[in-house]
Design a protein around this nucleic acid. Sequence first.
DNA 1: GCTGTATTTGACTAACTGGTCAATTAGGTG
DNA 2: CACCTAATTGACCAGTTAGTCAAATACAGC
Lengths: 219, 219
Amino acid sequence: MRRKSRNPERTREKILREATAEFAARSYDGARVDSIARRCRLSKNMLYHYFGSKEGLFIAVLEHMYEMFRKRQRDFAARGGDPVKAMRQLVAHTFQALLDHPEVIALLNSENLHHGRHIKRSRRVRNLYDPLVDTIREVLRRGVAEGVFRPNIDPVTLYVSFSSMAYHYISNQYTLRAILGVDFGTAERRRAWLNHISDMVLAYCAADRAAEAPGQRSA
Amino acid sequence: MRRKSRNPERTREKILREATAEFAARSYDGARVDSIARRCRLSKNMLYHYFGSKEGLFIAVLEHMYEMFRKRQRDFAARGGDPVKAMRQLVAHTFQALLDHPEVIALLNSENLHHGRHIKRSRRVRNLYDPLVDTIREVLRRGVAEGVFRPNIDPVTLYVSFSSMAYHYISNQYTLRAILGVDFGTAERRRAWLNHISDMVLAYCAADRAAEAPGQRSA
DNA sequence: GCTGTATTTGACTAACTGGTCAATTAGGTG
DNA sequence: CACCTAATTGACCAGTTAGTCAAATACAGC
């Protein structure tokens, strides 16, 4: 039987993969360095050799996660002529990305709980602009040109809006269930929620507005 | 100097108060029983005397938090004739409640990370209907009657929608800042965001819709 | 094949963690 | 005042935790 010969790259990746799983499952404080080492079938010293400390490892996990997510966003292109359809695809893509990568929500929640303490220490993550915002801007532009969207909609605000609704639905499903008595985990309810987010976004973007709604301020 | 004579009620409350602060600041796994005892200036045994275990204490904290929040929601009544104005008040109330009680977000996030493990064990919290939903229903009804809102809007869906946006804005402000490079903590940006949520809600509820937006399904 | 360097490991530790025990103290009640 | 019960405490423990040390091992270049 071939003893696993040394292979720094593979080892590093394996640690990163298992650490992501552990940190996502148990959050920063709940995660155990020994447990990660056991998952990797490596001695704990390897983690310290490559990442210095538990915090260093967590930062590397965050960076890796952000890069993966960003790449996925960049690879997505809302094609097709219809801006309304493109906007729906955009929302669906965001929702699906979060469903496909539950570790993203877990890691971000853990990080926000610590007031972004680790992200602040990472130079690679700071001011990492989400490429999806550019796609939104483009779709909005086309929609305005075609007369289906109203002008002067901020793409960042719109992005935060629908990603909030997608994220929160998944992230807080357990306490929402406890408070409202509704199971948000079923496929059908998810589909309905995705449609609802799109509906809200499109109602907000629609051009055929007149009276009092958007742009107005209350006292 | 008067040695603190025994007072079970006050002691219980003090433990609950300090435990809430500790669990909110450090989440369930990060919180330390010894630290809570130290905050209370009580021997650790008191926590075990009154709440049995760290988990029992956390459950009590969750229950207490829910009751407080629910009471606040119930006390709120969106008065006034104008349903549009009332809806804005409703959104503002929700946003402000989360700003006033940051521990709510911290505790709920911690609990969702554990897939609602503790909330499931609490009989007092299960299926605790949020009273604000009733207020929303009533405002929607009035709006439909006055012809400013369209009919058949689900109050629960609407509640989850705007509370998502309010909650997420506060909860994820640190990672949003890291990813988008925008400080979401300033008073002005908060005001703008509150207005934006209201705008979206009202655009969604508005009666004067015709063509394709709400209710439509994509493939 | 020799040697230097990077990879990998087993054994260890000092501090901490949730939880327990037996003992002490204060208040209400007869 | 004596007695019972509930509140409160100091001392302690077994298991765990992030992090360390020195040694061993494999690979690359000569």
